[in-house]
Computed example of a mutant assay.
Amino acid sequence: MPLEVFFPPPGGGSRSTAKARAICSGCPVREECLAEAMSFRADQQYGVSGGKTARTRQKLLRAADPRPDPGDPL
């Protein structure tokens, strides 16, 4: 499997990640893969891991972080 399947070029949209997400859905280590990917900071997320895109993992990480985002206006 080419790595490009899991690490498509940025801006490709959901079509570029569909194959990787489909592969992940049936993978026996999907949960472990996702847990490993979630151990990285939100700004270090890239590609598809554990069936989740980088954008989805970033949202999950930010939602779980109780600290305010310094870029958000108060």
Rank of each mutant, 00 (worst) to 15 (best):
M1T: 15
M1D: 13
M1H: 12
P2K: 02
P2G: 02
L3Q: 13
L3W: 13
L3V: 12
E4M: 09
V5K: 01
V5H: 01
V5Q: 04
V5A: 02
F6H: 08
F6Q: 09
F7I: 03
P8W: 06
P8I: 10
P9M: 05
P9H: 06
P10C: 00
P10S: 00
P10M: 00
G11L: 12
G11I: 07
G12L: 06
G12K: 04
G12Y: 08
G12E: 09
G13C: 15
S14H: 10
S14L: 15
R15N: 07
R15Q: 09
S16V: 07
S16C: 11
S16Q: 13
T17W: 03
T17C: 11
T17G: 07
A18T: 09
K19W: 10
K19Q: 14
A20P: 07
A20N: 05
R21H: 05
R21C: 07
R21Q: 14
R21A: 06
A22W: 02
A22E: 11
C24H: 15
C24Q: 13
C24T: 13
S25G: 12
S25A: 15
S25T: 06
G26D: 06
G26Y: 07
G26A: 03
G26K: 05
G26I: 07
C27R: 03
C27F: 05
C27Y: 04
P28M: 15
P28T: 14
P28H: 13
V29T: 11
V29P: 05
R30P: 02
R30V: 07
E32Q: 01
E32H: 01
E32N: 00
C33K: 03
C33F: 12
C33T: 06
L34P: 01
A35M: 12
A35V: 07
A37G: 13
A37Q: 10
M38D: 03
F40M: 06
F40K: 05
F40A: 10
F40G: 02
F40C: 05
A42Y: 14
D43C: 07
Q44N: 06
Q45E: 06
Q45R: 09
Q45P: 10
Y46L: 06
G47F: 01
V48Q: 00
S49I: 01
G50W: 02
G50F: 03
G50V: 04
G50R: 01
G50Y: 04
G51K: 01
G51I: 03
K52H: 10
K52W: 12
K52I: 01
K52T: 07
T53L: 13
T53M: 14
T53H: 13
A54P: 11
A54I: 03
A54M: 10
R55N: 13
R55L: 15
T56M: 14
T56E: 15
R57P: 14
R57D: 08
Q58S: 08
K59C: 01
K59T: 00
K59Y: 05
L61E: 02
L61C: 09
R62C: 04
A63R: 13
A64I: 11
D65N: 15
D65L: 11
P66Q: 08
R67C: 03
R67H: 11
P68M: 00
P68G: 00
D69A: 03
D69T: 08
D69C: 09
P70K: 08
P70T: 08
G71F: 12
D72I: 10
D72R: 10
D72S: 12
P73H: 00
P73M: 00
L74F: 10
L74M: 05
L74A: 13
